[in-house]
Design a protein around this nucleic acid. Structure first.
Lengths: 252, 252
DNA sequence: GTGTTTATCGTCAGGCAGACGACTATGATC
DNA sequence: GATCATAGTCGTCTGCCTGACGATAAACAC
């Protein structure tokens, strides 16, 4: 095994971000409009090049802050406020995925509560939240009737992988709380599960399950009626990260 | 977001392999001895540079074949024989992980049945299977009394992540069969679980569970007594890849 | 034959999830 | 202010799955 790094062809390394949130009962992803070739004018995932002195996680956190203003959660500091969950997703390195040169992209997955508005370097018209089904459909027309082009590069594949990761991970972890604000109700958490999985859940069984899992939720003492109906208890995410036994995703 | 690839610093991209197997009731990993600096003479995970025209998965499959002679399973061809399971694990890109230059490593995880003998380009003395606990312990002495140095680079971290992936993945998938030969008995499969998890499982409950999960095992009709005792039915891996409900790993 | 080893089938109790009834506490509407 | 719609919360019941463990079966060693 020869091992002289300079003897091998150079690669560019980027991070791309799958940023997911739940808005209006739908799982939405963040897309930015490309201002330069290739794929100029097309929608793509936010991302950028890794700098020479940066770790991959640092680069992803920097891009996330640039695109959304979100700070990434430090895993060492639990129950942090106003931060997004950020984790590495997978790496994509097909030789032809970028027509200009060999680019390897380390995709990351970010989960965030619903945000006031997207921003792409301050330019709101070049960034948007869209339901993931809309971003993933190849061609056709979006909800507003405009024609929709597929995402640039292999970003449809990356987004699809990120959505699948999120869908499976909320089964056995408390990650669904990353989609909620600091304080939330059981019903709001249930609507997160329903939006991410695209199913309806029984409110009574869901309530029994999440309140009966030790460490998942801690009551804050307050109540709210922001959803209408009877006031609901407010909770905060507990210290538990792994749910055992897991939440069961209903069969198709 | 500026996006000129050539304007950014060049990276070297490698693939490193966590190759796991079960030998003598222990989960073992493949290590190779480094012949060149840095870390000359130390044990490391097999791996190498990604070539200019290669996909990441291709590079990993090529390295696997070079180091072990194993062919990687094509996921599109189920129930293939004599192939190892190969999947991407994670990517490691700390700026200082290689002292010479910026190297980003896309680690892959391979699961293989017990092999006749390791080989590293034909040189058997420079490759070995060792229990993962032995490879992961920092310093100290191995089972043969020889002093053991930690793995080179960040390979202890990579190996640890790969082992954790394998341990959790056999819970909810049929991947444990990747550690078995083409035909195997329920007892042999149980010993795989016991070795990977490091626990003892009840043979009766395990038998009920795996034979009762549709698509997990298909009987071949044959029997064997190679484990001693009463002859056991031989099975082959079925088409199911996801186990629902999963195998439950006993509590600590 | 006796003992040992491994495989396989059965039984039973406890826990958890799905289905669903019942009641409570708000705001909206007439 | 009565009624209604909405959402939250507590219980009950049934079926399935798991863990614990007894019992039987079929090989080999002596």
């Amino acid at each position: 095994m020869s091992y002289d790094p300079s003897a091998y062809p150079p690669f560019a390394v980027t991070v791309d971000l799958v940023v997911l949130t739940v808005r209006r009962h739908a799982l939405c992803g963040l897309a930015v409009r490309r201002g330069e070739p290739p794929f100029q004018g097309r929608w793509a995932l936010p991302g950028g090049f890794v700098r020479a002195d940066e770790d991959l996680a640092q680069a992803a956190a920097r891009e996330l802050a640039e695109e959304t203003g979100l700070r990434a959660h430090d895993p060492a500091v639990p129950a942090q406020d106003n931060g997004a969950h950020l984790e590495q997703l997978a790496t994509y390195g097909d030789p032809k995925r970028d027509p200009r040169m060999r680019v390897v992209s380390v995709a990351h997955l970010a989960l965030a509560p619903d945000l006031p508005a997207p921003r792409a370097g301050g330019d709101a018209s070049n960034a948007r939240w869209a339901p993931v089904e809309e971003l993933l459909q190849q061609g056709g027309f979006g909800r507003d009737g405009d024609p929709v082009a597929p995402l640039a590069f292999d970003h449809a594949q990356i987004l699809s992988d990120g959505v699948e990761r999120a869908r499976s991970k909320i089964e056995y972890s408390s990650l669904a709380t990353a989609f909620c604000p600091t304080e939330f109700t059981v019903g709001e958490l249930r609507r997160v599960y329903e939006a991410v999985w695209g199913v309806a859940l029984d409110p009574r069984n869901f309530h029994r399950k999440v309140t009966g899992t030790p460490g998942f939720l801690v009551p804050t003492g307050g109540t709210t009626t922001r959803q209408g109906g009877r006031p609901a208890q407010l909770f905060r995410a507990g210290g538990a990260t792994l749910l055992n036994p897991p939440m069961l995703r209903p069969e198709v």
